[in-house]
Structures are given as structure tokens and as C-alpha cells.
Amino acid sequence: MNRIINIKKYYTCKEHLDKKFDSGRKSRLKAETKEEYLKWKEETRTLLKKVIGLDKMETCELNPETLEVIRLENGITREKVVIQVEPDVYMPFYILIPPVIKTDEIQCFLALPGHSGAGKYSIAGCYEIPAVADKIKEFNYDYGMQLALLGYVVLCPDIRGFGERREEALQTDDESAFINSTCFHLSHMAEPLGQTVTGMNTWDMMRLLDYLKKRNEWKYDKVGCVGFSGGGMLTLWLSALDDRIQQAIISGYLYGYKDSLLTLNGNCSCNYIPHLWEYVDMGDIGALLAPRQVMIQSCRDDHLNGPRGLINVYEQLEIMKKAYRLFGAEENIKHDIREGGHRFHNEVFPLFFHC
């Protein structure tokens, strides 16, 4: 027996919200000179810090504690460290230290995790964990370890909601819980307090940069950052708001918000920031990186690009390039396109380090 009725017409608000989106972007990049850009950059950074709730974050002593030091078979030394990022809020992370460290201007990279990879465990190449090994194979997720093998010191953190920082809802030994994150729950807790998941994680990465300075073993004022998917999102935001990041690789996360987060409205809660679309599109955020080196990596069939595919990416890249042209630095922004779906491609490393 059929217990429901067939609804032949639905009365939705999507079209109405599309129009609201089109009337937004009030703080878009309009600069025609370098001086106008620098003024826009300062004003937009101040605005975005407030929008994502950085003004709500509380500073404190880092109180770093080294929990373990292991020498891996490949010669990499892996340290596990925990720091205090806010009062009584702690962040564990791995540091991968190669036996011979680069003497380049940039010695250190932050390698930031995306979804469905168990946080730091995939990024740092914990192949001994079978569920993690599967995700590394699926997404090529061990880019932190790959960078360490190239001679860089790499910090691989658990961002909020991932790995050892999962909130109560996923604090079980179930494989799905271990692999996934509690972004949904964090978002529901944070937003009524005027905070966002993006803001909290951006803050924590800034504290990680503070830790590098406090440790004072490697160059800390010019650091690289790499991330795929949700890690690409955090790389974008951190690089946009903190000039200590001098090189960035953003993989699987550069596209227009309307196609990829309004039309594709089932993405993770950490993508959604109240009032953001009233002011900027993603390319405007990316424009805040100029004139620093950045590599954007896109996959042609990545579903997150939205229904228009790479066209949605190109439009945002053009906004970024406008900022780079003001500095005569178009050579510092590159776009690496790969075939297939949502995945990190490590071919980006030799391309990036020779650009």
C-alpha cells in the first residue's frame, strides 16, 4: 500500500537565491593599479577576518609538547607534537623531518588535510593503517610525506573535526568515523556564536606558523602550504590572510561559489560561511595571494567544479590573474589541469618547484 502521495510540483527558493547571489560580491576586486590593489587587500582582509570569525578567537600560550619521535624506514624522522591554539583547545600534528633538509628560501611546508582521509594520518603517509592506506591510494593523499621525501620539513596537522580532534559524535573506533570528520557538528556549534569552521581552522594554522617561529630550527617567515579538496580550501584561506605563506599549492578547490556551493548545495558544512557571498567570490579571495607563487590544480571531470566544469574554474582564475597583472607577476600563478575526477596529482611538485 502506498503511504504517500505523488507531488507533481515543488515550490522551491533556489531561483530566488540565485538572484540574491548575483546581486552580491560587493567587495569584489576592482583595482586598476597596484596602489588600489593594496588598499583593497587591506580592507578585504579586515572584512573577511570578521566574516569568518577570526575576531572571536582567543590567544594563549602555545605550550608545545612532543609526544613521540620515530625514525621511519624511509629515513624520515616523524615527531608528534601537540600545541594549545586557544585556551584549553589543543591541536596534535606530525612533523616530518628529512635527513637532509633543503637549503632553499623555503624549508617548511604545511600539508593540510581534506575530507575522507582521517586527517593527519593520510597526509603524513601512515601506510601501516589499512583504512588510511586505502584513502592514500584513492586520492594520492600522502602529499605531506611526498614533500618530506623531496627534502622539506612538513607539518601535517589534525584540523578541527579530523583525526584526534573529532567531536563526540564520531569518537568511536568505527572505520567510517575514523576516516571522516565532524565538520557538520562543529558548524552547528560555532555559527550561533559568530564563528565558522573555516575561521577556527585558519586561526589554528596561524598558530602552527607561530609554533615554527617559537621552535626556531627552520626558516619560519616564508613557508609553503599545500592542500587538496578541503585542504585546498584551508590553503586558500590561510594564504589569503597570512603573508607568511609564500608558496601555495591549491588542489581540487578553486571554482565559483554559485555553481559549486549554491547549485551543488550538499557539500560539507565547513564550506559555508554566513554573509560571504554578499561580498566576494572565490577568485577575489585568491586575488589576495598576489604576487606570491601559487599553483592551482584542477581535474577536468571533478564534480566539484560544478555543472559548467572548468569554465567555472577559469572565471575565478581570471579574477586572480587580474591582481597578478598589477604586479607584472603573471608567471607566479600557474594552472595545472589533470584528467579524471577529484584527486590530488603529485606531478604538480616538479612543475611548481621549477616555476
Rank of each mutant, 00 (worst) to 15 (best):
I4A: 13
I4E: 12
K9H: 08
Y11T: 09
C13G: 06
K19M: 11
G24S: 06
L29A: 06
A31Q: 07
E32D: 07
T33N: 08
K34Q: 15
W40P: 10
L47S: 03
K56Y: 11
C60L: 06
P64K: 04
I76N: 00
I76V: 07
K80P: 02
M91D: 03
F93K: 01
I97H: 03
L112W: 04
S116T: 13
Y121D: 13
S122W: 08
I123K: 04
P130Q: 10
N140C: 13
D142I: 13
Y143Q: 05
L147R: 06
L149I: 02
L155R: 05
L155D: 04
D158P: 07
S176T: 11
S181F: 06
M189Q: 08
P192N: 07
Q195I: 04
Q195Y: 08
T198E: 06
G199K: 08
T202W: 09
M206A: 14
L208G: 05
K219E: 09
F228R: 06
G230T: 13
G231I: 10
M233F: 05
R244N: 11
Q246D: 14
L254V: 05
L261Y: 10
T263R: 07
N267F: 03
S269D: 15
P274C: 07
H275S: 14
D284P: 07
A290R: 05
V294G: 06
I296L: 15
N332H: 15
H335G: 00
H335S: 02
H345K: 07
E347R: 09
E347S: 10
